[in-house]
Amino acid sequence: MILYGLKNCDTCRAARKALKDIEFVDVREDGMPADVLDAALARFGKALLNTRSTTWRGLDEAERARPERDLLVVHPTLMKRPLIADGDEMHLGWGKDVQAALDV
């Protein structure tokens, strides 16, 4: 199981603490593998973008109009967090639904 997020994100920290033996990838430092990004976009679409973030608010209209994939490659902090990949399954966020699905 791999958790993609930010090391200074409180939600990612909570997920990392609750999930034992999880590999962590900081998307700001390490980026996200293209195949994982493509799979996440195919599954979650625009929901993968955090349009309530400080990064989003700092973008101009032309930048916001770019395709989601391009935005996430250039601005990885725009991703809603955490993204948890467990084999072929993916979970976005750390709500009760995700915790229940992961038996936490």
Rank of each mutant, 00 (worst) to 15 (best):
M1Y: 01
M1A: 06
I2V: 05
L3C: 05
Y4M: 04
Y4V: 02
L6F: 04
L6N: 01
L6H: 02
K7Q: 03
N8F: 01
N8V: 02
C9K: 02
C9I: 00
D10W: 00
D10G: 01
D10I: 00
D10A: 02
D10H: 01
T11N: 02
T11I: 04
R13E: 00
A14S: 08
A14T: 00
A15R: 12
R16H: 02
K17F: 01
A18P: 02
L19E: 01
L19T: 05
L19H: 04
L19F: 02
D21Y: 07
D21H: 14
I22R: 14
E23W: 01
E23Q: 15
V27G: 10
V27Q: 09
V27F: 12
V27N: 08
R28P: 02
E29Y: 01
E29C: 03
E29M: 07
M32Q: 09
M32D: 06
M32A: 08
P33D: 15
D35M: 11
V36I: 14
V36N: 07
L37I: 09
D38T: 15
D38W: 10
D38H: 13
D38G: 12
D38I: 11
A39D: 12
A39R: 15
A39Y: 05
A40I: 02
A40D: 07
A42I: 08
R43M: 08
F44T: 13
F44W: 13
G45K: 13
G45L: 11
A47T: 14
A47K: 15
L48C: 09
N50H: 13
N50K: 12
T51M: 11
S53N: 11
T55A: 10
W56G: 10
G58V: 03
L59T: 05
L59S: 08
L59K: 11
A62S: 14
E63T: 15
R64A: 08
R64T: 12
R64I: 10
A65G: 15
A65S: 15
R66Q: 15
R66G: 12
P67D: 14
P67M: 12
E68L: 06
R69K: 15
R69E: 09
D70N: 09
L72W: 02
L72Q: 04
H75M: 03
T77M: 06
T77S: 15
L78P: 07
M79A: 13
M79L: 13
K80D: 05
K80L: 07
L83Q: 06
I84H: 04
I84C: 03
A85F: 08
D86A: 05
D86L: 06
G87L: 00
D88I: 01
E89V: 00
M90G: 00
M90F: 02
H91K: 02
L92F: 04
G93H: 06
G95I: 12
G95M: 13
K96Y: 03
K96T: 09
V98E: 08
V98A: 06
V98W: 11
V98F: 11
Q99W: 06
A100L: 07
L102D: 01
D103N: 14
D103F: 03
V104L: 14
V104D: 00
V104T: 04
